[in-house]
Design a protein around this nucleic acid. Structure first.
Lengths: 222, 222
DNA sequence: GTCTATAGGGGGATAGAC
DNA sequence: GTCTATCCCCCTATAGAC
């Protein structure tokens, strides 16, 4: 009823219910029975449309992250085309990567829940998440790394990689830890203000990326 | 056998086994039976020493995080005493908070496993982690926030809170995502080099904290 | 394509002996 | 304090009817 107005297919209903419940309770705490009850479909339908619970989890992620990453790559393509060979401004590069996920995390239609899951994908153990990582995240990181190398030519490669990881961490935490952030800040950090979060995150990360290399790590061999 | 040389108590053996298995497989994927088998103790011993699986999880965390936070607070006490009323240098403040966990994450004796769990504590749902957060993490954050306010007096409170969250995110990711980081960097980010990681993390975060406030968020009401 | 029914395997927790 | 035995719950996955 609060889902898509149009009656969706069994497969979509399962995906919607799974996404919502996984986000609320976690994967292990959500049974296929919970999902099929919520979706109003039969238990066996899960094993028909997806082969197993693990494949269902993977499908839930792919449905959201696929478009997300397409958007990131498309924006990068556009930016690089516009730049006509010149390196991108760090802030623009960061925005291309960070904006889609923050924006998604603030939409009501399942986006907030999906966002919770994205954060969990980095920490949860298991083959499903290993595949998710190598299949979805790693390619984007590689692409971003290449662009960042040109935007920050003075930064040694190792430093750049570390800083990209710090940025990913900050992003993941903002997206995954919204509830905690609200508690700690006494409600003063408004996680629904996407534009504000984005500006702040980009400001922070860009400054970190531009920082002079620490004297102690500077001398290390590449 | 690879554990403490001295024969430990049943309670400690359970904690050791639980920590290791939770870290390797996750909480839900580890049964009490797995734990008691690994520990070489009886299944019922878990319910005798801890009341439930959830309480056992909490105990595993408390055993590691308790000393960690004591160390952080002790260092802050010492630094503030030395500073004799003057604000702390941001880098020193950050180091006091970041060093203990990074250092622990690199020790072999269960520390690396505990580190995996620390990262998961921020993303996993459930009451256990809620309590862990309010009981262990939140007090430290509050304390750090107070110190940071004095170190960065020009930064509006909301900005400071956000930046602290970004820092927490970067830290969590470094600690929890060691395997992913190694993969993405093609092994070039050496997660066993604690001092290097620490210097880089502090450099990055300090620069982010010192960044001028973004023009668009500057004008917002407190 | 979708359902019913069930197989088959854990799981956490506990009672009561030692 | 520690163990044995067991209760009773819930799960995933599948076989076969519609």
């Amino acid at each position: 009823m609060t889902e898509t107005a149009k009656a969706s297919s069994t497969k979509d209903r399962i995906l919607d219910a799974a996404e919502q419940l996984f986000a609320e309770r976690g994967f292990a705490q959500t049974s296929l029975r919970d999902i099929t009850a919520e979706a109003g479909v039969n238990l066996a339908a899960v094993n028909y449309h997806f082969q197993s619970k693990d494949h269902l989890i993977a499908a839930v992620f792919d449905r959201r992250i696929g478009p997300l990453n397409e958007q990131r790559l498309a924006t990068l393509d556009r930016l690089e085309k516009e730049a006509a060979g010149r390196p991108l401004v760090v802030e623009d590069l960061l925005r291309a990567v960070l904006e889609p996920v923050l924006r998604m995390a603030s939409t009501p239609e399942g986006g907030a829940f999906a966002a919770n899951l994205i954060g969990r994908a980095h920490t949860e153990p298991g083959d499903v998440f290993e595949h998710l990582f190598t299949g979805q995240f790693a390619p984007v990181i590689t692409r971003v790394l290449a662009a960042a190398r040109r935007s920050l030519p003075d930064l040694p490669d190792v430093e750049l990689m570390w800083r990209l990881q710090f940025a990913i961490g900050a992003m993941s935490h903002i997206v995954a830890g919204q509830r905690h952030i609200k508690v700690v800040s006494g409600g003063r950090c408004d996680t629904s203000d996407v534009d504000g979060m984005l500006d702040r995150l980009i400001t922070f990360v860009a400054a970190g990326c531009r920082a002079p290399v620490h004297s102690r790590t500077k001398g290390e061999p590449a």
